[in-house]
Amino acid sequence: MNLWLTAATHNATQVDYLIFALVLISCAVLALVFGLMLLYMFKYRAGSDIDRGTLPRKTWRLEAAWTAATLVAFFGLFVWGAKLYLLLFQPPADALQIHVIGKQFMWKAEHDGGQREINAIHLPVGLDVQLVMTSEDVIHDFSVPAFRIKHDVLPGRYEALWFRVDIPGTYHLFCTQFCGVDHANMVGEIVAMPKADYQKWLARSDAGETLAAAGKTLFMRYGCSGCHGGDGAGANQSQSTVRAPSLAGLYGSPVTLADGRVVKADDRYLRDCILTPARQRVASYLPVMPSFAGEISEEELLKIIAYLKSLSQQEPS
């Protein structure tokens, strides 16, 4: 069990100081409250015949004193917290910009050179990086605990975050604003690498995404994942009440239809399934899939099928 969280940016360390200060203050107050409570509970228990003297006279000074003390402490904490918070919104002018789009249920990132990635962002260490973020549907939230940053990503407007990573490594990226069924799968990783490695990575990555990656985007966008599961994994792990067959490992394998025919799941079969699902009904599943004829362009169909193909290559079955 790891009770420590890497502070990978300068800002993260600063936030940690604030949190530790708050922990210290809390412990002090708790010690005082619990200490006095336990002490009095023991000392002044009904059975104890300790001399209690006379009751102290009512005094407003004591009340005023601890009210004032709390106020001063609180004001200090406010200023400290606010200073660090404002820093988050003052990006250096020459920061490297990366565009981030959140959508149900994935993060898409695009680098200035046109390199795109999904659910991952590669970054150089030691450079100021600014994320410019928006959402295509609901409110998401871009959160990297190791950087101690978090910001809601709203549809229709840009939000920005900036940071400078000091320690290379791979860090969690979470969506922390509840965004629907697959909210918990809207996670990814931030890969912080030395500048030279980052340049190599940029050069290696194609500008523009592969057909399969584009297909995955479409698979999500058209809601296929709603029934067939986030990775085309099918109804068992699917997060929907609608049961739909698994698509992982489907491509190239034989399929038994409801009317008893057995066909091979090739490009053409998949295409027909998407456009006229009622005619290719798979045995033991309800005919609930809507037709996508007229909604999906041919180009998009190609990409989706390429994605389904890639699912089979990952899991040879």
Binding site: I19, L22, W80, A82, I149, K150
Partner: peptide
């Protein structure tokens, strides 16, 4: 108090 402090809230909320 942690979540009222702006910068700490960003991490903890």
């Amino acid at each position: 108090l942690f979540v009222a402090a702006l910068a700490a809230d960003v991490h903890l909320t």
